[in-house]
């Protein structure tokens, strides 16, 4: 294809877009809306997955809260009972005082907040390392039957629940995106149809003079792709600043607790940008092709 032809295609694409400003705006907005929702879902799902895998690493353990009223003998008896369970590698005792010290350390600068507590609310506990994750369920049910056990904290459940939520968000989200993308395609194909009608006469002449079918079609596909890409750009900006803002806000409020679990912006943005560009351009191209098939017999 000649450079001049390429310029002609681009120019016709923009002219068509400008001629029906309102429809173009509607198309861009609907692509942007679909992609913003897509962006939200990606961010949620990726973050939940990230939290789940981080949690998995940190808490590949079972924690047993010891009943408050137990004596020291009873506590150490419980300890040996725990170690006797098949699949338990070690059982480390952590007194409530020690637990408080550990928490202060983890909270770092905000540690002073804990000093305002009148009473130590943390329980005495055993932290159990498993020989393997496969033993987890068996160990947990054995632990629940032991004398002196108040509660079994088992993070696998939390992780599983998190993953379930992520899966649910993904499924519902994909369905929602599917619908939004269809709507976007529909609007784009209508916009292209208007552009087509505005150029009917020109197309008719082009056919008689011997323009190839692709020469006639390309400007409309270019128009659709431009609409899609503009929508993608807007969505990218919204998601970029939206996430950046939220990320900062969460960091400022909850410092230590959350920041480690959220994926940093640049990691997210690299992938999102590619995905948005591809989807935006794809939706635009498909939208115009639908319109061309229906309304242009070349």
């Amino acid at each position: 294809m000649k450079i001049r032809t390429l310029k002609y295609m681009m120019k016709q694409g923009f002219v068509g877009l400008w001629r029906n400003k309102n429809m173009s705006l509607a198309s861009i907005t609907s692509v942007a809306a679909s992609l913003v929702v897509l962006g939200l879902i990606i961010i949620l799902v990726l973050n939940i997955n990230n939290i789940a895998s981080l949690t998995q690493l940190q808490f590949d353990t079972v924690q047993v809260y010891v009943q408050e009223e137990l004596t020291e003998e009873e506590i150490s008896l419980l300890g040996s009972n725990i170690e006797a369970i098949k699949g338990v590698e070690t059982a480390l005792y952590e007194s409530k005082e020690q637990a408080m010290l550990n928490m202060k350390e983890r909270w770092g600068e905000q540690g002073y907040l804990l000093e305002t507590l009148e009473e130590n609310p943390l329980p005495n506990s055993y932290v159990i390392n498993l020989e393997g994750i496969d033993y987890a369920d068996g160990v947990v049910s054995n632990l629940k039957n032991l004398e002196g056990v108040d509660e079994v904290k088992y993070y696998k459940e939390i992780i599983e629940n998190l993953l379930k939520i992520a899966g649910f968000i993904r499924t519902v989200g994909l369905a929602l995106i599917g619908i939004l993308i269809l709507v976007a395609m529909f609007i784009i194909s209508n916009t292209v149809k208007l552009a087509l009608n505005a150029r009917r006469q020109e197309i008719n002449i082009m056919k008689y003079v011997g323009a190839t079918n692709w020469f006639i079609r390309w400007p409309f596909i270019v128009e659709g792709v431009i609409l899609g890409l503009l929508g993608a750009m807007i969505a990218l900006v919204v998601v970029r600043y939206g996430y950046g803002y939220t990320f900062d806000a969460i960091n400022n409020k909850f410092t230590v607790v959350f920041s480690a679990y959220l994926l940093p912006l640049d990691i997210l943005m690299g992938r999102t940008m590619m995905m948005f560009a591809v989807i935006g351009a794809g939706v635009g191209a498909l939208g115009s092709i639908v319109s061309l098939r229906k309304h242009l017999r070349v």
Partner: peptide, 18 residues
């Protein structure tokens, strides 16, 4: 078809100018 038409010029009653 387009290449056939490049070899045939056409004129209509209604001019068909842009």
């Amino acid at each position: 078809i387009p290449y056939l038409r490049r070899n045939i010029g056409v004129v209509f009653q209604d001019f068909r100018l842009l």
